[in-house]
């Protein structure tokens, strides 16, 4: 399969209220590495299994939440093509200069109808640690904390899920891998740009621009269990899990960073091919769809966001 267009999630910028507590959480507990701190105080992090410059950006603010999520596209020509398609669709596109985030080239930036800022870029530097590519070991620095392998996806909450679905599928060429359909319309959509079960997801919510969680991939179910040990050992605020999602099949834990932003660590999940049908759930099994073992939503799932 040739992958073109949007390749994968690149990075996400998260607002935190206490930078030192956030660094300890994302570096020591999640297991990320600090690439650098920018002149403006933003902190750039990555997982050791990622080649690119950074995947998590922490910005000190007086509230929690997510500033933006950016996807990497194939090349500059592809980026220009998306810019035209987005503008033709009727959404205003801002240009972000190369270097606004260190190591990242020119970006295009736009706000979708759910109130979330999404960006695309094609050029970026690599940074250490990163995987070896010649006669190499499994890792170059010893894994620590929850041993996160990559920033995998995010789930956002906001209005106009139907419009978001139309935009992502028609303009950015994403596929709808899975959806929850309620009697009064779409409740949630799980969108993929590659072969993962999801790269970004949205759930219907009256407030625009809200952030449900950022997710990190772990190697296996044993590492999910080890992450749960870490969550209790370091008194990290737990939401739910370890459990499994019916949607995507992912084995998961939801918990909160020191500013109240929800994190997920997960393992597994099915492989998506672009010819596969969309998998659907209705309200009878929405509990199993979200939390497969509990078979019902917890109170926080639909109401606790930053």
């Amino acid at each position: 399969m040739a992958m073109t267009g949007v390749l994968r999630p690149g990075f996400i910028q998260i607002r935190v209220m206490d930078m030192e507590a956030a660094k300890e959480h994302y570096i020591k507990r999640i297991g990320l590495h600090q690439v650098m701190e920018g002149d403006d105080g933003r902190v750039y992090l990555k997982a050791a299994d990622e080649f690119d410059h950074h995947s998590i950006v922490l910005r000190k603010a007086d509230d929690a939440g997510c500033d933006l999520m950016a996807f990497k596209v194939l090349d500059e020509e592809t980026l220009d093509g998306f810019k035209k398609r987005i503008e033709d669709y009727g959404i205003e596109v801002d240009e972000v200069r190369a270097g606004e985030q260190p190591g990242i080239g020119r970006r295009i930036s736009f706000v979708i109808t759910s109130g979330h800022r999404i960006e695309l870029y094609s050029n970026c530097d690599q940074s250490d640690p990163k995987p070896g590519i010649f006669n190499s070991h499994i890792w170059s620095v010893e894994p620590h904390g929850m041993r996160a392998r990559r920033f995998d996806h995010a789930l956002f909450y906001g209005p106009d899920i139907d419009g978001v679905l139309d935009f992502f599928t028609k303009v950015l060429d994403f596929k709808l891998a899975e959806k929850v359909q309620m009697p009064d319309g779409l409740l949630g959509i799980w969108l993929t740009c590659g072969m993962k079960a999801h790269d970004i997801a949205f759930v219907k919510h009256p407030e625009p621009g809200k952030f449900h969680h950022v997710s990190f991939e772990l190697e296996n179910w044993n590492d999910v269990g080890r992450a749960a040990d870490i969550i209790t050992n370091f008194n990290i605020s737990i939401d739910i899990g370890p459990t499994r999602h019916g949607i995507t099949y992912g084995q998961t834990i939801y918990f909160f960073d020191p500013s109240g932003n929800r994190n997920e660590v997960f393992a597994g999940g099915y492989t998506y091919y672009p010819d596969l049908p969309t998998r659907a759930w209705d309200e009878r099994d929405v509990g199993k769809a979200i939390f497969y073992y509990e078979r019902q939503l917890n109170e926080a799932f639909l109401s606790v966001v930053t």
């Binding site: 209220m17 109240g260 932003n261 109170e299």
Partner: peptide
């Protein structure tokens, strides 16, 4: 399921617990 969606009121209330970290 209705309780999961917050549709039931006037029941003995549970504490409003979310992120427990000042964010939500």
């Amino acid at each position: 399921r209705a309780q999961g969606f917050g549709k039931l009121k006037n029941l003995p209330k549970r504490l409003p617990v979310g992120c427990r970290r000042g964010g939500c």
